[in-house]
Amino acid sequence: MNRETLFTIGKGIIIILIIMAIVFALKAPAADLNGLDADGKALYTDASGLPYFSEMDSYYNYRLT
């Protein structure tokens, strides 16, 4: 492979990594339920206190798409 092909592939990989980092930064706070009161938090957590989903309405959004 020549230098131009490697540069094009490298740019694509960097763009993909940047997009993945942005998506992770947007999705990671959804796992934190500290913004809800105790009653609201109980609806979205299991018996051990872990959240059911990282997104509160992930299947609803999936059905809409």
Rank of each mutant, 00 (worst) to 15 (best):
G40C: 03
I19H: 07
D39A: 11
T8K: 14
F53G: 13
M1S: 09
F53A: 09
K11A: 15
S54Q: 04
S48T: 15
A21E: 11
V23C: 10
I22Y: 10
E55I: 01
Y44W: 12
G49F: 04
A42R: 07
D37M: 04
Y44D: 01
I19S: 15
P29Q: 08
N61L: 07
D37H: 04
E55T: 02
G49A: 10
L26Y: 04
D37P: 10
D39N: 10
A28K: 13
A31M: 08
F53D: 11
L17F: 14
Y52A: 03
T5D: 07
L6H: 02
V23Y: 07
D32W: 08
A42I: 03
D39V: 07
D57H: 07
G49Q: 09
A28T: 09
A25S: 14
F24L: 09
D37V: 02
L26C: 12
E4C: 03
I13E: 10
A30E: 12
I9T: 15
Y59T: 04
A25P: 00
L26W: 06
P29E: 06
T65D: 08
T8H: 02
L6R: 10
K11E: 06
V23T: 15
L43P: 01
E4T: 12
A31S: 12
N34R: 13
K27L: 10
K11N: 06
V23E: 07
I16M: 09
Y62L: 13
I15H: 05
I19V: 15
M56P: 00
R63T: 04
F24I: 02
A28H: 08
L33Y: 08
Y60V: 03
D32H: 08
F53S: 10
R3L: 15
A31E: 05
M20C: 09
R63F: 15
L50W: 01
E4L: 13
N34P: 00
K41V: 01
N61A: 06
F53P: 00
I18W: 11
